[in-house]
Design a protein around this nucleic acid. Structure first.
Lengths: 343, 343
DNA sequence: CTGAAAGCGCTAACAT
DNA sequence: ATGTTAGCGCTTTCAG
């Protein structure tokens, strides 16, 4: 197989030096005549610069890593990560960078993969998501000088760049909505309390309830994000005769809805449900789910933009971007109102 | 910020040359005494080899690309891709390689992304999936000397490495099962006919029907993989009074089930449904879906193993790996049998 | 505006 | 078993 073309070869064919070719490739200053000639050679030869060589010389790889720890099998059953990846991918495409995906469960090789992420000369920076409280990954990243931003709200948020949605405000809105509907025995299906989203949604909901003079008392359960955990939690909660429930994620809400109908009850008549995510297609459930919508794709895009600015040195002091959520009112809450902005 | 450590530095501290350090890092022959000393220095300094430098010198990057064209927003609503990525990711982790993800819709930048995939020195090889018939991507790949394997069955399969599931045999089994159940007015909700899976499942089903002396006549519709398209197709098909239907994917089947109940009919009593994928959690639907299960994760793992062997030059003549499927019998088909092997 | 030359950090002959 | 040397293909001063 014939040797790959390099800058030197292209230069020779165009009658210029390799530096000149490099300049036309990278948009340096070149006379328009030379430029034309060089570009012609590039077009006819199909020359493409060698990525590794370029990375080595320029000390920049053009790839950003996306790290998702504890990628349990169930991870991708939730549309959340797909959407996030879509947002991140489209943003990296836009800035002409490549996306490297680091998924790992907690096998024995976890450490080795973590260290692969910070291998010099592999990626320019990384986006970390789906971390849990006290996740060693973030501490580890802080110990390196690899630029990174986290999607979510890490423990020590003050010292890291991060982009998140306002889980707390969104959940508070849900509580207020339920209260406004006249429901007085609210229940809560929380998300794992070792995640920032789980904590914030729980606190926000309780806060909203308190403002309305309500309380969950013992009508509270915790799911693990899975649909089935939502069903189980709801089944248990039903014993407390709630007239409404805030479920911390759409997927768990689908399970909760199922538990409600399995118990022979009707949603929204007997029990009003509001969930969080706005990610399950409305028509998938009966009744259609009222949900606090979070802009997942935008979060992903923003994370990339923030990261590139950190990499470029433009952003230097830790910055937090927080996206607002929006309450999409549908039938499951028992309101007759149409979907409308909120929160 | 202090300069990064390189091989030379480590060598100096250990009192050896850089080649010796390189040897201990890469497992060459080194006396155990020197090896110990060098490893100590590496451990205490936290030295990590520079990926780009290594790629350049060794002409191998250690990253494999996963290309998913036409990554329409809906792509990730189907658990299929998540599972596939999981399988591919775990296999790349195992062989200590990195996964680069190339997702693209058909924006104007499609071409530029395609060409990024074959950038020299970026990835060692790529896995291509979700292609459609006549997809220019595969032709383009064949025009380069980038190793690649396709997940699915491309047009010109004879000249490419690929791994697929036996869609045809799986669909045939579904037909036979319906026939064995005594259903005589079968219907078909096909998947897009510009995909190999869509074509194979359709043909396999019709083939099985023919063997059983049955026919769909005009009870045939085509969906676009989405749940809603399944619902719409089913609603239309109901006019032909089918007593059974084979839906080419689980997600479309969920929609179909919905259409059945919206029409006031009962599944499986009035209509028996069998679908393909085995990817939707059984408890998500009522009744639970009888489905032809395909081993998505294994397909992903096998694809990277095949690719690495192509990259390594071990596999040189186009090879096709085809996984069998298995019919999981549940309630939606109206059989009382338990889940069992099939296909 | 263009060319020459010096690396980037590593691997891989080739010596010893 | 270990050191020496020559690149890998590119970017980037530095001259001119």
């Amino acid at each position: 197989m014939e040797r790959r073309l390099n800058l030197e070869d292209v230069g020779r064919r165009a009658g210029v030096s390799r530096s000149t070719v490099s300049r036309v490739v990278n948009g340096g200053h070149v006379s328009s005549e030379t430029k034309r000639r060089v570009e012609a050679v590039i077009a006819e030869t199909g020359y493409r610069p060698h990525a590794a060589a370029r990375s080595l010389a320029s000390n920049s790889t053009g790839v950003i890593g996306l790290v998702i720890p504890s990628a349990a099998g169930t991870l991708f059953d939730d549309p959340y990560f797909g959407r996030l990846i879509l947002g991140i991918s489209s943003a990296t495409n836009e800035v002409d960078m490549t996306l490297a995906l680091f998924l790992f469960g907690d096998g024995p090789d976890e450490r080795s993969i973590i260290s692969r992420v910070v291998t010099p000369g592999l990626v320019d920076g990384v986006i970390v998501t789906a971390t849990t409280r006290g996740d060693p990954l973030i501490d580890h990243m802080q110990g390196t000088n690899m630029p990174f931003v986290v999607v979510g709200r890490p423990d020590n948020a003050v010292s890291t760049f991060c982009v998140d949605v306002d889980n707390r405000a969104g959940a508070r809105t849900a509580a207020l909505h339920l209260a406004a509907l006249g429901r007085s025995r609210p229940a809560l299906i929380a998300a794992p309390s070792n995640t920032s989203a789980g904590i914030d949604r729980r606190n926000g909901f309780l806060e909203g309830l308190a403002e309305a003079g309500l309380s969950v008392e013992d009508r509270i359960a915790e799911g693990d994000w899975s649909q089935d955990s939502g069903r189980i939690a709801m089944a248990r909660l039903l014993g407390g005769q709630p007239d409404s429930v805030f479920v911390s994620s759409d997927r768990m809400a689908v399970g909760a809805l199922r538990a409600v109908s399995e118990a022979g009850l009707n949603c929204p008549r007997d029990i009003s449900v509001v969930s969080f995510d706005g990610i399950v297609p409305p028509d998938l459930t009966t009744p259609r789910l009222t949900s606090v919508v979070q802009p997942v794709t935008e979060v992903g895009e923003r994370a990339v933009r923030l990261l590139t600015s950190v990499i470029g040195g433009a952003s230097t002091t830790p910055e937090h971007v927080v996206f607002p959520t929006e309450l999409a009112v549908r039938e499951s809450c028992g309101s007759t109102a149409q979907a409308r902005p909120g929160a």
